[in-house]
Design a protein around this nucleic acid. Structure first.
Lengths: 235, 235
DNA sequence: CCGGCAGGTGTACGGCGTACACCTGCTGTC
DNA sequence: GACAGCAGGTGTACGCCGTACACCTGCCGG
C-alpha cells in the first residue's frame, strides 16, 4: 500500500537516481554530441530542473567521470585461454568497440586528470594480463606506458574525423586549390592520391581506421613479445 | 615625420597585430594555464577591450589554431645526414621539447578538428623523412598513423600529471586506504611499489616520462625499420 | 504525531563567446 | 588642403554556461 502510494505519487516521473542521470547523460551525448551536453540540457531531457542533478552528482566533472565508467563498463572481461597476445588484442578491440559506440568518450577521457576506480580496475586487469603472460613487473610497467591511450581502444591520431558537413578531401576542392596543395605538401598529396586510388569503393575519408588501429596495435604487441622473449629490462 | 607622429599617437599602447595577440595568448596560457585563457582575460592582458581581438582573429577557435602554429614553429627543422631513424627520432624529441615548454598545447592539439597549414607542413616534412629513408608510400602512410600524436612529441598517456596540489602517490595516503588499494588493484600496486623503490631519488610522480616516451618511440621506430627491410606492404 | 532529512525547486551570480552598432583617426585621391 | 573610406578600437547587449544558496515538500522512523 505504502509502495503503491509512492509509485503513484512519483509516477508523474520516475525518481531520479545517479544511475538514471548517468545513463541519460550518455544517451544525450551519444545523440547530440558531447558539446551539446550541458547540465541544463540534461536536466531538461530528464524533465527536471537543472539543480536537481546536483543531488546525484557533485558537479559536471563527476558527471563526466560517471559517464566514462558506464562506457568502460561495456568493455568485455579478459578472455580465458589463449596466449597473452591474442587475449590482450581481443580485449583492446572490445574496448575500441565500446569507444566507437560512444564517440565522445575518448575526448572526455583525454580531458580527465585522475582515473576513477572503475578505470583503475580496468588498467589493473590489463596489467594482470601481461603479468600472467610472463612479463616482468618492469616490462609490464613500460609496456603499459607505451600503449598509452591504445589500452582503451583509441589511437589518438591527430585530426580524426573532418567534422560533419565538410567536403570530401578528394572531391570537394577546386583544381586550383588542389594544385597549390600538391605543391606545398608533396608527400601528403602522394599518399592521399594513392589511398584514394586504392579504395575507390570506400566512401569515407579514405583511411581504414580499423586497419590503422590494428596495424599499430600489432606492431606494438609484437614488439612487446620480442622484448619479453629477450628478457628485456630497463636495468 | 609622419612616422614619428604615428609612433607618438599610438605610443600609449603598441598597436595590436595578429602576431602580438597570438604571442600574448601563448604567454598567458604558459603562465596561467589554458583554462584561464579567455578572450576577456587575453584582452585585459593586452590592455584592450575584448572585442578588439576579433579584428585580428575570427574567433577563439582561430586563436587556438594560431597559438598552435606558434608552438609548432618552435620545432627544429629536419637534421641533415644520418639515417632516417636518428633524424626522425631527433626531430620528434625536438617537438617534444616544444610541447613540454607549452604544456597546454597537447590538449589543445587534441581538441582541434582540422589541421592548420603550418601543422600540415610539419606532417608533410615528416612524411618526407620516411620517404627519403626508403619507405614506400604505403608504409609511410601506415607508419604515420601508427605514430599518432607521438609524431608531435606527446604520448597521450591516460591521466598525465595528477594536477597540482594533490598528494604524492606514495606519501600522501593513509595506511588503511593503501591497504584497500593494494587489495583492489594488486598489479598497479606491484608496479608502483617497485617504481617507488627504484627511484628513491626522484621526487616526482615516480615515472620518468622522458624514458617512457623514448622507450615506446624506439619500439615503434625499430618496428618500422624491420617492416621497411622486409619490404612490408598492406597488399 | 512530529522532527528530520532526502530530494526537487527557484532565483541569482559571475563568467563566457561574440553579434552589432558605433566612433575615431590615418590614408590615398583629387 | 578637403574629404571619403576604411582599418582598428569601443560599448553595449544577448544567450549560454556551471553552480551557490535558500527554500519547499512529502516520506520515514521514533
Amino acid at each position: 500500500m505504502v509502495e503503491l502510494t509512492q509509485q503513484v505519487d512519483t509516477a508523474r516521473r520516475a525518481p531520479l537516481t545517479r544511475d538514471r542521470v548517468l545513463r541519460a547523460a550518455v544517451e544525450l551525448a551519444d545523440g547530440t554530441g558531447i558539446d551539446a551536453l550541458s547540465m541544463r540540457k540534461l536536466a531538461q531531457a530528464l524533465g527536471v530542473v537543472p539543480m536537481a542533478l546536483y543531488k546525484h552528482v557533485a558537479n559536471k566533472e563527476e558527471l563526466l567521470d560517471g559517464m566514462l565508467d558506464v562506457v568502460v563498463g561495456e568493455i568485455d572481461p579478459p578472455a580465458a585461454g589463449d596466449g597473452w597476445q591474442p587475449a590482450v588484442r581481443q580485449r583492446i578491440l572490445s574496448a575500441r568497440r565500446a569507444l566507437l559506440r560512444h564517440p565522445w568518450a575518448s575526448r572526455v577521457l583525454e580531458s580527465r586528470t585522475a582515473p576513477t576506480p572503475v578505470v583503475l580496475a580496468y588498467m589493473d586487469s590489463m596489467m594482470g594480463m601481461f603479468r600472467s603472460g610472463g612479463f616482468s613487473v618492469d616490462l609490464t610497467h613500460h609496456v603499459m606506458h607505451a600503449m598509452g591511450s591504445r589500452i582503451l581502444g583509441f589511437s589518438q591520431e591527430l585530426f580524426g574525423t573532418p567534422a560533419a558537413g565538410s567536403q570530401d578531401a578528394a572531391a570537394g576542392v577546386d583544381p586550383e586549390t588542389a594544385r597549390q596543395m600538391a605543391a606545398r605538401f608533396p608527400y601528403i598529396t602522394e599518399i592521399t592520391t594513392q589511398v584514394a586510388h586504392d579504395d575507390a569503393s570506400v566512401v569515407g575519408s579514405g583511411c581504414d581506421d580499423q586497419f590503422e588501429f590494428e596495424f599499430s596495435l600489432d606492431l606494438l604487441l609484437d614488439g612487446f613479445e620480442r622484448l619479453r622473449r629477450e628478457g628485456w629490462t630497463s636495468r
